[in-house]
Design a protein around this nucleic acid. Structure first.
Lengths: 240, 240
DNA sequence: ACAAAAGTGTTAGCGGTACACCCATGT
DNA sequence: ACATGGGTGTACCGCTAACACTTTTGT
């Protein structure tokens, strides 16, 4: 396309994404193996040059769809922009990083030179991309606590023990399914579908199927501290 | 200064800042009045072109010091990068926005074409800069609840009623000084200096002077929800 | 009958707001 | 003495973790 490479100081702007998914009970990130220097053989985040007249989010969506066949992002948000003069050998490059989330039930068809890696055990990575993955993981962990972002990790319907497994993988610690259920129900994040899953060979009560109520990010529990006066009483609290 | 307007498609990267300060009990933002089209006469955020080999944060620091004589930022953090193709008439421009905070006791010497405006009552602003100011205010409000970011609003020493005034201005609602004291003390954000301020003409007990303990941003109350198991007991909780 | 997994009830504790009450100073 | 503003003590309440207990299934 308009790959105006080889220019001096003003190389183009890059857009990258840390695409996360819970795979086999581990929080994993989609990486791409560089075939050429710099950082030949190292793993990097998918992405590339920003096109001439596309927005930033638009661009990373396009590139993920084209290059790694990831079309089913349940959530995408901007993380940060990095532009240290020395972050790129051979001329400074600005890069805007995004966090993308793929629900656990989807299996994107990725090219041979890309692979999923556990976010807690990253391979040797090029540029400053490992730091970006950590930013994404921190962001996800934080938002699991005060937003409904779980909708972007879970399939459309799930049992509570499955969901607690996703939370455990993302947060890095155990989450009791029994309490998670109540917390998310009271916050209005999830609801029961009415259906249930037959119990396995070893018996046990069949699990109820739940779903998230909203398909977009919502803040359900804006931090518990420094509330406006009167917020305790349920009667008519100010909207914001 | 180096306002290279009227260039074609590939303009350079811009760095902007929403510089906030509590002034006369109101959260205010430093704006700059454009003298030339586009957006002639409208107010915009200070900032400008990113220099050839400077980092993003470095660049906004330099430009704030050079152009508006703001050298005493107690805190600076990246907000977001905007790059919608139509955000700039006459060619797309990417802009990375920062949030800067100036403590209340400082009076920067700003040029004639810049002025402080209440963040809750913005004038007519150019580009998408009003949205950036709102992002900055949202970020500040959120971080007041779970970090020690108050250190960047308050002077080195302050009474609790002064501090509650800063919190009220930034949060937009009353904050009881008596409870704020306990909350921030328990979190270890502030401490007493031992000194106190003589009471005014109308009498009253002299107020104790406090200070923030750390001069840098720290998360003191990572959201109260979804704690790891065992976090309640004070004995040896995991570091992160 | 028994084991296993899901879901409910209940308790305890933390953290925050609200408010009455005490403290120190000026007039 | 009294007014004024700062600081402490305390009650209350929401929220969550922990855990015992009940429910529903398979063997």
């Amino acid at each position: 396309m308009d790959d105006t490479a080889g220019r001096g100081a003003r190389a183009g702007h890059e857009v990258l994404a840390a695409v996360l998914q819970i795979r086999s009970g581990r929080l994993s990130v989609l990486l791409w193996r560089r075939a050429r220097p710099p950082f030949e053989g190292a793993w990097v985040l998918p992405g590339g040059r920003l096109g001439g007249d596309e927005g930033l989010g638009e661009s990373i969506r396009r590139q993920l769809a084209q290059k790694v066949d990831v079309r089913d992002l349940a959530h995408l948000e901007q993380l940060e922009t990095r532009g240290a003069p020395d972050r790129c050998p051979g001329g400074r490059t600005l890069a805007t990083a995004y966090l993308g989330l793929v629900p656990a039930h989807i299996e994107p068809v990725v090219p041979a030179d890309t692979a999923w890696h556990p976010a807690s055990d990253l391979p040797s990575m090029g540029y400053d991309h490992a730091a970006i993955v950590h930013s994404g993981r921190r962001r996800l962990r934080a938002k699991l606590s005060y937003t409904n972002i779980g909708f972007a990790l879970a399939p459309p319907e799930f049992t509570m023990s499955e969901l607690s497994g996703y939370y455990r993988a993302a947060l890095g610690h155990d989450v009791a399914a029994t309490n998670l259920r109540r917390v998310l129900l009271r916050r209005g994040q999830i609801e029961e579908t009415g259906r249930s899953v037959p119990s396995g060979r070893s018996g046990g009560r069949p699990a109820a199927l739940c779903r998230f109520r909203a398909p977009r990010l919502e803040v359900t529990d804006a931090c518990a501290v420094l509330r406006p006066p009167g917020a305790a009483r349920p009667d008519q609290r100010p909207p914001c």
